[in-house]
């Protein structure tokens, strides 16, 4: 009963001083809130377990390294870490989509036809043609930088050497090229999506 009365801030400071049991109280006190919070985002027990574990590994490391800045807000801080790790999890997953293995195996979940069908390839040609026409509208110096960067895949360093301007100027021209292209696209209501 007495343990419940100790404030989080005090437990954190005891833990930093080396009292391992303080961590156990902190985890015990907040585990359900943090776990439910993670579960409410990911809806998967195993992932929740992983994120929960990573959250506290981060908490432990930060506290032990003395990087924790006590502002009397232990739980919101842990929640923020958990939130960031949930975002990391979704980012990682969108980069590496996994196929659902739960039911029977379907070969189509791993095979897909990446080539464009006739309609999509026509749209793609149209879009590319439109982009070229928009580029033609740009002032010469901006057009040059944009072509070198996008179509010839040159770095800004190479572009600056080739055109004899500083890197900053090349970057600025690229920026204005994009701004101007957006303007032209907006003014003419050009749709560049397929």
């Amino acid at each position: 009963m007495k343990k419940e009365l100790i404030q989080d801030a005090e437990l954190v400071s005891n833990y930093i001083k080396g009292d391992e049991s303080a961590l156990s109280i902190l985890i015990g006190r907040h585990k359900q809130k943090i776990y439910s919070f993670i579960y409410s985002k990911v809806y998967d027990r195993d992932i929740t377990e992983d994120v929960f574990q990573d959250t506290f590994i981060k908490v432990i490391r930060t506290l032990k390294l003395g990087k924790y800045n006590e502002e009397g807000k232990f739980l919101p801080w842990v929640m923020r870490i958990a939130h960031n790790l949930v975002i990391d999890h979704f980012r990682k997953n969108s980069r590496m989509p996994k196929f659902d293995n739960a039911g029977e195996f379907s070969i189509f979940s791993v095979l897909s036809d990446s080539s464009l069908n006739a309609e999509k390839s026509m749209i793609k040609d149209q879009v590319e043609c439109d982009v070229r026409r928009v580029i033609e509208e740009l002032p010469e110096d901006q057009k040059k930088v944009l072509m070198m960067r996008i179509y010839q895949d040159m770095s800004f360093k190479e572009i600056s050497e080739r055109t004899g301007v500083s890197i900053n100027t090349a970057l600025g021209r690229m920026r204005y090229a994009l701004i101007n292209m957006r303007k032209v696209i907006e003014q003419n209501n050009i749709v560049l999506t397929n």
Binding site: L23, I27, K31, Q32, Y35, E49, F52, Q53, F56, I57
Partner: peptide, 11 residues
């Protein structure tokens, strides 16, 4: 909605 005991003890 609680973490497994193993997870807590690992931590």
């Amino acid at each position: 909605l609680k973490p497994k005991d193993e997870t807590v003890s690992f931590l």
